[in-house]
Amino acid sequence: MTDTKVTNILPIVQATIERHGPSKEELVPILSDINRSLGYLPKEALEEVSRLLKIPKSHVLSVASFYYMFSTKPTGKHIIKVCESAPCHVSNAFAVIRAIEEELGLPPNSTSQDEKWTFITTSCLGVCGVGPVMIIDDDIYGNVEPSQVPSILSKYQ
């Protein structure tokens, strides 16, 4: 997810803006799509958005840094999210978080050296009936037991 040479960034930004229309009201959906395509929002992308939408760079950065789902730092190939909100907490999400930390040698809210994994803890994901919940990329795992963590993680290359 991190092959973000400048030559790749600008075409993606331009295509995204063309899809949504160059209006400042579309800023959040535009940044969302770019974040999805590139894995994060590189500085060059934000500058290009500012240029094409004709809005100040400070405004673009203020929005890019506000929303939790945007990242201004590179992320790993696979993103693991574990909910640590109250319902998952009382269902022992802590043990799942510890199990992931042990398995990958990665503390929460960090990216591995080899850039394979980004591990973050999140607020409620809205599937509280099956807590504790773990999401890897677009796959949702519910009722996760700590002992299942190694086999779930091994599915991802």
């Binding site: 909910c83 909100s85 109250a86 319902p87 998952c88 607020s123 409620c124 809205g126 599937v127 509280c128 009936g129």
Partner: peptide, 11 residues
């Protein structure tokens, strides 16, 4: 934008 932890009725 149902964000309350524990609420998933709207979803």
């Amino acid at each position: 934008d149902e964000g309350d932890p524990g609420a998933f009725m709207n979803r």
